Amino acid sequence: MGAALSERDWAILRSVDQHRFLTVRQLHDLHFNELSPVSGLRISQRALARLRQWRVLGTLERRIGGLRAGSSGLVHYVDVIGDKLLRTETGRPVRRRYTAPSRTFLDHTLAVAESHIGLITAHLHGKLEVLRSEVETAAWRTYQGIGGALLTLRPDLYMETAGSVGGEMVSTWFLERDMGSESIPTLVKKSREYASYRSTGIEQEHSGGSFPLIVWCMTATRAATAEQRRSDLRSRIERDARLPAELFRIISPNQLIELVQRGGDL
């Protein structure tokens, strides 16, 4: 079966595996962006239908936008044949079993993918440069805490970027996507985990002495609620003596590209 997949088919499979779930539009933006919007969508839907037929990819029962969204609302995951192909390629011995995600988990996962793909798309259009990117588990950092306890920092995304193509100034980022479902004290606690990890100096040893900026990319069901939550978190971080406020950026999703282009200044 692997020989029947084109280079683009393999790239699609790896992208879905990397992000866990991706929509038709997200896959179109990643792998068919050089085509016109109309033909690109048609060709991407045809390619994805073929991969579904071969069980390289599967789709969730729930669609983004509901049933009226049609095939454009399908959310893809790696199906049994795709998993077998990836295990053969990587040597991964354990089969990844599919379980239907909760709505909260799926919404968050797709939001993380949206931030990542938005940056990759900006890179492809020459608006900035993505030098390295790691999504969720690949971005996690394991370290020893107080008393030798083994701890894991779990950012949603790690990025190394330049504000322009070929730019000499490289910025590093840990990104957290908040969908409005966690309390502000929970976000402050997570922010303290970053401060704890920073104090170990591990990350600085691998990045020339600097620590990544920590971006809280926050949204909610209502725009007013999201703005209030951003304000509340910003205030709590600034008042917390244990947190280096200068390391945190608290933004809405539509500010991410500009933030990266400016190297952290808004």
Rank of each mutant, 00 (worst) to 15 (best):
H125W: 10
E129W: 01
L131G: 14
L131V: 12
R132V: 09
S133T: 13
S133P: 02
S133M: 03
E134G: 08
T137K: 14
T137V: 12
A138K: 15
W140D: 06
R141Q: 08
R141S: 06
R141H: 09
G147A: 07
G148A: 08
A149S: 12
L151W: 04
T152C: 04
T152N: 09
L153S: 10
R154K: 15
R154N: 06
L157K: 08
Y158H: 12
T161A: 09
T161P: 05
A162M: 08
G167C: 03
E168H: 08
M169C: 10
S171R: 04
T172K: 08
W173F: 00
W173E: 00
L175C: 06
L175W: 00
E182R: 14
E182D: 14
S183L: 15
P185L: 09
L187K: 06
V188I: 15
E193I: 09
E193P: 01
Y194C: 05
A195L: 10
A195Y: 07
R198D: 06
T200Y: 04
G201L: 05
E203S: 08
Q204H: 02
E205D: 12
S207P: 00
G209N: 05
S210Y: 04
F211Q: 00
F211Y: 14
P212Q: 09
L213A: 11
L213F: 11
I214P: 01
V215P: 04
V215H: 08
R222T: 11
A223M: 10
